[in-house]
Each structure stands twice: as C-alpha cells, then as structure tokens.
Amino acid sequence: MPETPARMQFAVTARRLDAHGSVAHCKSASVPLDTDLAGSANAFNPAELLLAALAACMIKGIERVVPILKFELREVEVRINGIRQDAPPRMESIDYEIIVDTDEPDRRLELLHDNVTKFGTVFNTVAPGSKLAGVLRRAR
C-alpha cells in the first residue's frame, strides 16, 4: 500500500485591536492588519495580504529551486497588481512580474518560471479562482 505523503499544517491567529486595526500572529512574528473600514496606510488590507502571500510564495519557490538547479542570481523582485471585482467580491485578475538579476541564459529563466508556477502552494491555490498571469524577466 503506498504511503500517504506528509501534509504540512499552518496556524495563524488574528485579533481585533480596535475599530482601526488588528494583528496576526504566527510563530514569533506579528503582522499589523488593516481592518479599518476607512483603510489604513500603516498595514496591509486583506487583498494586499493575499498579493503579498503570492509574492512571498514566488520568492520562496525560487529560493527552493536555486540550489537544485544551481541557478546563480543576485536579486529577485516581485511586482503584483490585483483587480478586485465587487459583485461577488473576489480578485478578478492578478498580474505579476518577477524580475531576476542574473547572468543565466533565457532558457534557464523559463525553467525557473515554470518551477514557480507548478510548485507554489499559494500560486496554485489562487490560480483557479482568478485570472493569474505574469512573466519572469531579467533585470535590466
């Protein structure tokens, strides 16, 4: 009988501080949350958190495969824009640009992008519910 692969579990706790904000805790980290109906410039709102999670997923995916592929890079930047639909409320579309500072050939950049799209947990959770599209390109 084949073994069932181990599943990773994650836990986050969020608490309302007042009508202007909340805070999320995970491990020994805290993230301020913009839960104010008027908005807050000092914290990520839920949609921005989703986009930040997607960006972190992409960067972490790159970090995971860089040693496997023996891929040399100096820097990675991810830029993400999301369009929110009102009725029903959802992220209608998300466009991203992954910018990699590297001397690797173009075919290796394509391989890196393939790994990001195939093996990212958040990427593959968001993709079925939104028009998710983007590019991985070399820094100029």
Rank of each mutant, 00 (worst) to 15 (best):
P89G: 05
I62Q: 12
P32G: 04
A127W: 03
V126P: 03
R140E: 15
F119K: 13
P46G: 06
P2A: 13
A6L: 13
Y96D: 01
N115F: 04
V100C: 09
S40G: 12
R74E: 15
A56F: 00
R16N: 11
R138W: 09
H25S: 12
T4C: 03
D34T: 05
S130Q: 04
A56H: 08
L112S: 01
D101S: 14
F123L: 02
H20I: 05
R64G: 05
H113C: 04
D106C: 00
L17Y: 06
L54R: 03
I80V: 15
E97T: 12
A47V: 06
E97A: 15
P88C: 14
E72I: 00
P105S: 07
P46E: 12
A139M: 05
R16V: 12
R16T: 10
V76A: 13
R79D: 00
K131I: 03
K60N: 14
I99P: 01
E97Y: 08
K27T: 03
V65I: 15
V78K: 13
D36C: 14
I68E: 15
D106Q: 13
A6M: 09
Q9G: 04
P2M: 09
P105C: 08
I98Q: 09
N115I: 02
V78M: 08
I99E: 03
T121N: 11
L54Q: 07
Y96G: 01
L50F: 01
A55C: 06
L112M: 15
S130E: 01
V116R: 10
I68V: 13
V65G: 08
I83D: 02
S28C: 04
V122G: 07
S40P: 00
L136Y: 02
P128Y: 10
E110N: 11
H113P: 06
N81I: 01
A53G: 14
E3L: 14
T4H: 07
R137Q: 11
H113E: 02
L49V: 03
R79W: 00
L112C: 08
